[in-house]
Design a binder for these strands. Sequence first.
DNA 1: TTGTATGCGTTATCAG
DNA 2: CTGATAACGCATACAA
Lengths: 325, 325
Amino acid sequence: MANIRDLAKEAGVSVATVSRVLNGYPYVSEEKRRAVWEAVEKLHYTKNIQAVHLAKGRTTIVGVMLPYIHHPYFSAVIEGISKEALRYGYQLLLFQTNYDVERELEALERLRMKQMDGLIVCSHEAGSEVLAAYQEEGPIVLCEQAEEYDFFTVYIDHYRAFAKALRYLVHKGHRRIGYCIGRMTGPNSQARAAAYQDVLRDIGVVPRRHWVFDGCLFLEDGKRVMRQWVAMGERPSALLVTSDQVAAGIVLEAHRIGVHIPEELSVIGFDNDPLAEMLGITTVALPHFSLGEKAFRLLHHWLETGHVPRKQEELPTRLIVRTTG
Amino acid sequence: MANIRDLAKEAGVSVATVSRVLNGYPYVSEEKRRAVWEAVEKLHYTKNIQAVHLAKGRTTIVGVMLPYIHHPYFSAVIEGISKEALRYGYQLLLFQTNYDVERELEALERLRMKQMDGLIVCSHEAGSEVLAAYQEEGPIVLCEQAEEYDFFTVYIDHYRAFAKALRYLVHKGHRRIGYCIGRMTGPNSQARAAAYQDVLRDIGVVPRRHWVFDGCLFLEDGKRVMRQWVAMGERPSALLVTSDQVAAGIVLEAHRIGVHIPEELSVIGFDNDPLAEMLGITTVALPHFSLGEKAFRLLHHWLETGHVPRKQEELPTRLIVRTTG
DNA sequence: TTGTATGCGTTATCAG
DNA sequence: CTGATAACGCATACAA
């Protein structure tokens, strides 16, 4: 492949002039400018972007760390990130972790290696002290609440959102309230667990261990939950479900096996997935797409200006009452 | 940041030796080896990956070009690609195009610029002659059928799959058959249109323009289709729907407004989405995940060995008869 | 307006 | 086993 030196020789100018022309700098005579572009044509030249990155010390690449891609939540977040990245001419490097700490560390190491200008962490398993340790290696923006280490973060207050939905159920007369969650660890899950404990304590109900369903991520998990539910002794009368996909699974399976919703079981989902609307599922709308957008914008602003209006930004949630609870 | 020269000075060896140690080459005395690693610790050194890329002329990065991410089809494909990439130590650079040809060109240019070792094209809008022109700039693997330009491709024979489903409907006695599709252009859509024309011609039915519903990608689009359907004069008695999400939207909306499926309208989806199983939707199972996997493997094999067992690989489909058609 | 020289941080070749 | 030194391809400070 031709390089900048070949161009210089071909055009009869210096490499500096070639570089100036290629990057659109002023103060180059029209004549030489044309000569360079002609050489570009003739030699079928393209910049080697890696050399550019090395020379400039920047990449206009941002990393995105997330556990899964094929999941409505995360694919919406990426879509938001991606849209903004496109807008500002950045590229996205994907780090799928499956919540494996080793892989999370791999992504963080890549930040140290200057492979990208910054990293957006959508969700993580490693302790936040680990992330904190990498803060000085490069800009990191979190999509989860994290108070301790003064992270840059765009987040949803899951404690509040969960508590709000719980109180709504309590207000409707429910006392045996359970919930479904993707995993037990992680700040979001912890916040929800805390809200659950607090609200149940307030109404003087002792939470039962089997009212909590773990590993609920996909539609099929809802089906499983419903089956467990019918087989249970002391059934919850209401379920808070941290994903509309799972909520839909519950509702559809209930329908199939003849469990009446909300008479026998109230269901409140999260996300405001189109599926929830379609099925009339009461849900807490979460702004996933704009979460991604804002996370990117925060990072971008930081990268371009070196500072940022505010390090934390909370996004609003909204309870949408439909027919299932 | 410390670089390899600082390390050399600190450890009292040459940069060449440092490089050898860092890359685990043999023929380095144990003593110097230890000295280097100590210097690494002391100076908190990390490789600058951009310099490595430049020096080696490779990146172990592959690009993924696709129109949207937040879509069950594409996010499944990426998931498959990502899983294999992880396995072989490659990273993924995302190029979301929204089917904008400018953006597709941008991705292809990045291949020329050596930003990545190869490119997987999940779907594209630009003419295949454009892609073909970039074949010499770097390895490209397509996830769509493309006979003309001798592409490397892993694909589903959409003509066959579509024809198979159509004949099944014909066999069940249908003659007024319509279909829903994501977009009208692109090889997959053209193949389906061809199959549609051919099968209807075989049974002597003249296809009606309004039996074809364009722009069907998401659940909501199914709802829209169902509403159009009820308002139509000469309604199709069966619909082939190229996405289970859309098929689900149709089925759910039909249920809501009291249209009986399959008595009044048969519906056959594509994908074998969990939602289709849940709703009992007859569907053609498409191996999206393994499409991604195999696309990556093909590319990887090519990158590592410089050749490939076979350039084209077709993936099987399977009609799963449930209750909607 | 243009050119020279140097830096970016590695890898790889070739003597020794 | 080890070290100089030349790539890799581009950007840029400095001089002219």
